[in-house]
């Protein structure tokens, strides 16, 4: 579903990603862990072309992201084509990024209405269904500012799901939450994984990675230091850097 080959990304002189490879199969949950500044969030943002990569290739569901290859030459995609690619990739942000001027329901309905141009009644029905699925059927008409962090993040997940994505990207979805509220968001993500959604999750929740993840990569300094089955990597890290990191967070 996701294939990344030798991805490089620099901000000015600062090289943030130095050759990342990744393979996530259909229905798989891939967790990405690592210290801050290791480039894991940047890599995630490259997958839906929020960041332009400087070298390498990323494919999602067989489609090259952000570029078109024609006659052995790469052509940058138009903004519209990039937008079309993003429709099938859902993203959940650390800071939720809900639209504060819209109610919870309007947040979830916005993209299917404007982008897919589906009928309002249909979109509404499905939005309520999704909000029910994340346990927020009673919050439909409130504004995001009136919801707790955990509730906002669950709305954000419902909003991403409303576009029926093939792939979901999670950028530290629980890092901005009170410890008490982390569980409710992780539960929603677990259910999503159990339903067979393909997910790439940047997280500090080692427990979640162990329980739900099908694969785990540990990044540091812009490279993948270690990758494998979550249980193996967490219980028995091979690399010194991984051992040091896990010793601190576990």
């Amino acid at each position: 579903m996701v294939r990344a080959e030798n991805v490089h990304k620099s901000f000015g002189h600062l090289e943030v990603l130095k050759g990342i490879d990744l393979e996530v199969r259909h229905g798989e949950v891939c967790c990405v862990i690592g210290p801050s500044g290791s480039g894991k969030s940047t890599f995630l943002r490259c997958i839906n072309h929020l960041e332009k990569i400087n070298a390498g290739r990323i494919w999602v569901d067989g489609d090259l992201i952000g570029y078109r290859e024609r006659g052995g030459k790469l052509h940058e995609m138009q903004a519209k084509e990039v937008a079309a690619q993003r429709r099938s990739i859902g993203m959940v942000f650390q800071r939720f990024n809900l639209f504060p001027h819209m109610t919870v329901l309007e947040n979830v309905m916005e993209a299917p209405l404007r982008v897919r141009r589906e009928s309002k009644a249909q979109v509404r029905e499905r939005a309520i269904e999704l909000l029910d699925r994340v346990g927020l059927a009673n919050k439909v008409d409130t504004y995001p500012g009136q919801c707790s962090g955990g509730q906002q993040q669950r709305v954000a997940i419902a909003r991403a799901l409303a576009m029926r994505p093939k792939l979901m990207l999670f950028d530290e979805p629980t890092s901005a939450l009170d410890p008490e509220l982390v569980g409710e968001v992780l539960d929603v993500m677990k259910n999503l994984a159990a339903d067979g959604m393909t997910m790439v999750v940047v997280t500090h929740e080692i427990g979640f990675a162990r329980e739900v993840g099908d694969s785990l990569i540990f990044m540091d300094g812009g490279v993948v230091v270690e990758a494998g089955a979550p249980r193996d990597v967490i219980a028995n890290p091979q690399h010194e850097r991984t051992q040091a990191f896990l010793a601190k967070v576990l």
Binding site: R86, F93, N97, L98, F99
Partner: peptide
């Protein structure tokens, strides 16, 4: 307006114009 708003809209597949009209300008 928080740049995260524009990113969230673009990640949902809204075009630049839609993002400006529906998300950025109202805020």
């Amino acid at each position: 307006v928080d740049p995260g708003q524009g990113e969230a809209a673009e990640a949902l597949g809204l075009t630049r114009g839609q993002t400006l009209r529906r998300i950025i300008l109202p805020q």
